[in-house]
Write a protein that binds this DNA or RNA. Structure first.
Lengths: 403, 403
DNA sequence: CCAATTAATTCAATTATTGAATAAACCAGC
DNA sequence: GCTGGTTTATTCAATAATTGAATTAATTGG
């Protein structure tokens, strides 16, 4: 389904204009012309089209600069809505969000600690979306698309989940099932990439073209943004940072190898180590079985040295791994996000220190290391929603094969 | 200097046509239309332009398929010539090559084992190019561009060499000096990227969009090809694979850290280890000081266990490092090239084995591992020439900022 | 030598961009 | 309150590229 070459130029320029408006926030037509390289005439035409479609609106008048005051254009927050759905070990999270990433409604569906079948998850996702739509008082036809984030590698084009460790799924096309049930365009990717999409659209990656997003979730992942696009590799499974082996005789990971980043720094691993330490009598939790990540964060707050050591080690491993990322990708920025940022300095300081210690000077600066401060569970779903936005507004330039 | 948007479409389509012709070799106008998505009318127009400019020619008639036989178009091998210049520890290598990577002339200038100044290297490069042109009986105006490869990180846009370990240079603009002297468009990049350009244009990366080129030279480097383009990162210094630390308490590397890939597997390191082993009496070379890489390859052939062990270790470290590359980039292919491939199986088998052992199954296949068989020193310069070709025929698509 | 078939070109129509001219909007100062 | 100067935005004819349809060219088999 290649776009007719004839329409390409318009599509490219439309995308260019949208992109500038999105990163600038508020911008006049004259500035758009200057920034895009297009003539004022073209900008007038394209913006008229976008306004007619409801994607952008004239928001306010700009500052007086000696003559007619510019009308500042901005995204129409209500120009489109998307649904974000994220699957994690704990729950299914659903949000409805607008073009400015405001969350209009959100619903979550807790999951039990057992293996679910594909049919069960499909059913739960669909009903949770429906509930969320009901609560947000939304009709289906106001939704432009649905983004789905899952904790495992995905072939994004076909929509097939290659492998889902939590439930032992292999080669499952969850996207098509959901799409068939909802009747809306659906996109699926692993959660690291959806979080990267969110950072690129709304977060710390806005306006930056080359950056990395390290995601500290149950596993450890990496979203790679290159030239403004999520890089997925040949088979769509790039970014398995969590399975870079750092200590060859380290703990066994669910990937089958020993000592990879995730085997130290994934939430699952942190909890495992904390439980092992408790079982060995190094500390006394109320109930070993009831240890959760949040309870460990509480232990950190109360200065439990054993737990602090576990997090320090995880941070150090992460930093050592990240030094490879710096050398290989030379990113403008590394953004660290995910549930585990809640651990705060006990994880992040050793991360930073190990990164600095293990990165040769010649590999460039590592100043731009950003830790996302606040993590709430709805960010997962927001990431998934961003994926839908990104796919919906993708510039056709990205489809051109180039040289 | 952004291209006027008006001319963009033509430029894109021209580049698209050239690209298809280059990868296909011989192709009819009808096939070009089908492949490019353009109409036959446009293809006629664009190819007429390209033929007039001498870039492509009608090479022969195609097979009879029931009607008029197609005229097959191909690159005009004499449509353009470029010069490639490579700087290594040993010598300056210069070639003149055509659009089919045939080497028309080549000249090399041995270097002494000492620090050269920028002026000296500039002078030597210019005179070597001039000698090569004389020998090839080439006039300056037949050369479209000059590519320069150097063994160190380069800011390609500005042409500034960030750092050249061999001679202790920092922030030197060699490109502008050469350009001023030769009066031809010059491009500069580190040798790993020029070798990647060569693989992309003429070698094992032809027609592949996402692959990695591991370069085993005095140091260890990495050329990263993403979406058909060399990826250079935010500051232009991506791909420092050689300085990924594998064994934190390993040998000291010239990068200042210990135990990085290069500290085991760079040619310099291999020679260092062989000399140390000789000094420790583990083997008896004729003259310790005279040990070169080629003499070590000879030792491998005569089954010197000590030397074999050194190469095995290097291969294993490379494989362990490469497993990270597979997990992070999910490349279609990994191409291994550079002087050290001359070491053959003693280096490459352990490489392959360690890669297999250290790559989790979930990170995808690693079947497509290609070792460039024959390495000759002129390949360095050919890589540099490919860089010039790549820059000269770059599609304007690559300049568009996208989303 | 003609019919059938495929390749390539020509040509008028369409469409997007553009520079220049025009219109609109706005403030300052008289 | 109105005029002048200035900046923003739109209009409009000209330009250039693509396209589908029609035409021409080339080729072989019967």
């Amino acid at each position: 389904m290649p776009m007719p070459v004839r329409d390409l130029m318009r599509a490219i320029n439309r995308a260019k204009i949208i992109q500038i408006i999105r990163t600038a926030g508020l911008v006049s037509r004259v500035e758009l012309a200057a920034e895009s390289g297009l003539s004022k005439a073209s900008v007038t035409g394209i913006t008229a089209e976008l306004i007619k479609e409801g994607l952008i609106i004239e928001k306010q008048s700009g500052e007086y600069e000696g003559g007619r005051r510019p009308k500042l254009l901005g995204l129409n927050p209500d120009g489109a809505y998307v649904v974000g759905v994220n699957l994690s070990i704990m729950e299914i999270n659903v949000v409805i969000m607008n073009l400015e990433a405001d969350i209009i409604a959100n619903t979550s569906q807790p999951l039990e600690n057992r293996h679910y079948s594909v049919d069960e998850i499909t059913e739960l996702m669909v009903t949770t979306v429906q509930t969320c739509m009901w609560e947000g008082n939304f009709a289906r036809d106001r939704i432009s698309g649905v983004g789905i984030g899952v904790p495992g590698p995905v072939y994004t084009n076909s929509g097939i989940i290659r492998f889902l460790p939590n439930y032992g799924w292999e080669n499952v096309n969850l996207r098509d099932r959901i799409e068939a049930r909802l009747g809306l365009p659906c996109f699926i990717d692993n959660s690291s990439n959806t979080l990267a999409a969110a950072e690129r659209w709304f977060g710390e990656g806005k306006g930056i073209d080359n950056f990395l997003v390290v995601t500290l979730l149950n596993g450890v992942g990496l979203g790679i943004v290159i030239n403004g696009h999520i890089y997925r590799g040949a088979e769509g499974i790039a970014g398995e940072f969590g399975h870079n082996i750092i200590i060859p005789d380290g703990p066994l990971c669910r990937c089958g190898k020993k000592g990879c980043v995730e085997s130290f720094a994934g939430m699952i691993s942190l909890i495992r180590d904390a439980k092992a330490a408790a079982a060995a009598g190094k500390w006394q939790p109320a109930d070993i079985e009831a240890i959760t990540f949040d309870s460990l964060v509480a232990e950190l707050k109360s200065n439990n040295k054993i737990i602090i050591d576990i997090f320090n080690q995880a941070g150090t491993i992460l930093g050592r791994g990240a030094s490879h990322l710096v050398a290989l990708f030379n990113p403008s920025r590394i953004i660290v996000t995910g549930t585990s940022v809640k651990a705060g300095r006990h994880l992040l300081e050793p991360f930073k220190a190990a990164l600095a210690n293990n990165t040769p000077e010649m590999c460039g600066s590592i100043d731009d290391l950003v830790f996302v401060k606040e993590w709430t569970d709805e960010q997962w779903a927001r990431g998934a929603g961003s994926l839908a936005l990104q796919e919906l507004y993708k510039s056709p330039v990205s489809e051109l094969t180039t040289d």
